[in-house]
Design a protein around this nucleic acid. Sequence first.
DNA 1: TAGATTGTTAATCGATTAACAATC
DNA 2: TAGATTGTTAATCGATTAACAATC
Lengths: 216, 216
Amino acid sequence: MTAPTPVSRATLKRLPLYLHVLEGLERQGQDHVSCTFIAGKFDFGAIQVRKDLEVTGVRGTARLGFKVTDLIRAIKVFLGWHNVQDAFLVGAGNMGKALLGYKDFESYGLNIVAVFDADPRKVGTKIFNKEVMPVAKMPALAKRMHINIGIVTVSAESAQSVVDAMVAAGIRAIWNFAPASLEIPEGIILENARLTQSLAVLSNKLTHVLNGDIKE
Amino acid sequence: MTAPTPVSRATLKRLPLYLHVLEGLERQGQDHVSCTFIAGKFDFGAIQVRKDLEVTGVRGTARLGFKVTDLIRAIKVFLGWHNVQDAFLVGAGNMGKALLGYKDFESYGLNIVAVFDADPRKVGTKIFNKEVMPVAKMPALAKRMHINIGIVTVSAESAQSVVDAMVAAGIRAIWNFAPASLEIPEGIILENARLTQSLAVLSNKLTHVLNGDIKE
DNA sequence: TAGATTGTTAATCGATTAACAATC
DNA sequence: TAGATTGTTAATCGATTAACAATC
């Protein structure tokens, strides 16, 4: 019914930043906020913030700005974070453990309900009170529990087979931490969280600074 | 002397993806590769790849494509990954541990040489053979060792003070994993690696799929 | 030679930024 | 009222994509 409203990836990535600022303001009891104030926390301008907030559908009032609680709610709804989704994680290595230990995910709409690993030595151990299960059991369980989100923290070599199994088991969205370029069928959502991409930007900038390539 | 060559962040983030594909080809003994082939691994086209590779300065040959080893070398140089940089990590929590356990960083130009934490219970323990030191000792050590890169894996609350100490100690580039918007002086490089941004994109897309908002 | 692929310039597309009237 | 801030339309900017001659 409602138009699909194509929102840019850039906007989508800024919304959690705003959310963080807004939650801080809410804790302080602030009830309204202007785009100018939010923009002050970042290296882009108030117009950008206003444009981004437009997608939430919340209307501000001139002079006063936007109502903090309304914005928080609207951003969460927009991102799909108001309803927590159950997720499976495959790969009980360091990154997998880090994600399992991250308490805040629930407020970002994510609840990791089970952990799987191919290594029999890891199976049966507990990570943050979650028992590691054999990866072979993942598909059947994912189907039965109607899991929509799969988190991939295995090695680059195993990633494709894990993803294939997830897709076959009805998982619709894959959050991939493996440094591999994965093939997925049409309609499945793949989001890569690659640290090396972020590191590349850092390294390249640092190189320029160290080389004295000053940009004015 | 050489022009600063402003390269887009988007290009910078695609280069590690190419590098990964290229290293795979190198292992297979392939000596040339075309943009078409590389693009086949991703959801963008050959023209994009060719444009990106332009920044490395490597020239291809018509019909044959680019020499794999040349490209690998040139991308590494371009990103500053040919020389390994020593880095300090502050925050021995889950994410800190995950980064310390990540063996491949050296081939991405990063060598984490020391770990710090404010928690006295963590100080003195070992993580992957590295002893956790009190954060108070970080500045003097960073100065003495001329550390350029600081990795921040502390909580949002402590992040700003850690960053301030890093900057005061002469650290030039900060890789931040804390969900906080940090203030840094002019000339310091800040790269945020925020998982929540990536998760936001995933959650939003999944919401659309589950709601049946089909885009054609 | 024929044809795939590069290198480079131009066209398109989309996102950011600017402008400004409306409003509280 | 005056002035800060929103909402919205238009202008700018930059990145992606297309086009095509050159080349191996």
